[in-house]
Design a protein around this nucleic acid. Structure first.
Lengths: 139, 139
DNA sequence: CAGGATGGTTGACAACCTCAAGTATTAGGC
DNA sequence: GCCTAATACTTGAGGTTGTCAACCATCCTG
């Protein structure tokens, strides 16, 4: 039997592993809030007081526009989001969080942002360094 | 109009943002290899020469066992994976990559591991620090 | 050996996702 | 001003992903 996969050496492979590990962890959290992972992603992207056009959402999600239609249909039917006509262009519909949606979004971010136990293992120095580095990665 | 969301300050919120950004980036990559995101995840988890029981896969994916059945059905029908009876326990079936599956997996990891442009912005020092920190996060 | 736990499959059903086609609106060329 | 092309979203069909409940085969324990 071969040994377990040796830890990859570069930074990006490690991030990929962290990414997949984290991916597995979203469904239970979503279920807790009666949401699907995809709905969490959408809710995460609509900031309160910052309406976003549906097309832009599709682009950010890297998915087909018709998919966004369905996702928003379900979120809207639950009263979390509202479609509003755009002032400038009557073709586009912008999405706004309802108060309920806004509260649920805050709860979601709160849950997701609760640091996992693994983070406790970092020293204060390390955590600061990580923050600085991630900031640069995200622009 | 409010300003864009201020950058979160803790390490974990930043990781969450990186996670969501990365999530949007998987579907196009998967499509390029004629795979779905979920199939990528499975392929990522089956290491060559390291057969894994289906149940363990379900646990790692944090999904129902019946879901794994379907995923493996499709991967197997494409000749990427094979079910094999386990020596010790005749209830369990372990998954092995076929040579084709192994090649596709290598290609997948290669594509995913190609560092995005953002990583180039890090200095050598920062990258080393990031690697060290991520290693600790992943155990 | 009986009864219960465990690993995997099946079937029903909902959500997710893409593609192709359709509608409404906008923008550009004449 | 019009006619055409492009854009924003919706609809419908069809496959994938995911859950749950029920099921069979195998293991394990008393």
């Amino acid at each position: 039997m071969k040994p377990a996969t040796p830890p990859p050496s570069g930074a990006w492979p490690l991030l990929v592993r962290l990414f997949f590990a984290q991916r597995a962890n979203l469904p239970p959290l979503a279920a807790e809030l009666r949401l699907s992972p995809a709905q969490c992603h959408v809710l995460h992207l609509i900031e309160p007081e910052r309406p976003i056009p549906m097309g832009q959402l599709a682009e950010t999600l890297a998915c087909d526009a018709s998919n966004v239609t369905g996702l928003v249909d379900r979120l809207e039917s639950r009263g979390l989001v509202r479609r509003r006509p755009s002032a400038g262009d009557r073709r586009v519909k912008v999405l706004v969080l309802t108060p309920t949606g806004s509260r649920l979004r805050a709860l979601l971010l709160d849950r997701m942002t609760a640091p996992p136990a693994a983070l406790e293992r970092l020293s204060l120095r390390e955590e600061r360094a990580l923050v600085r580095i991630l900031r640069r990665l995200l622009e």
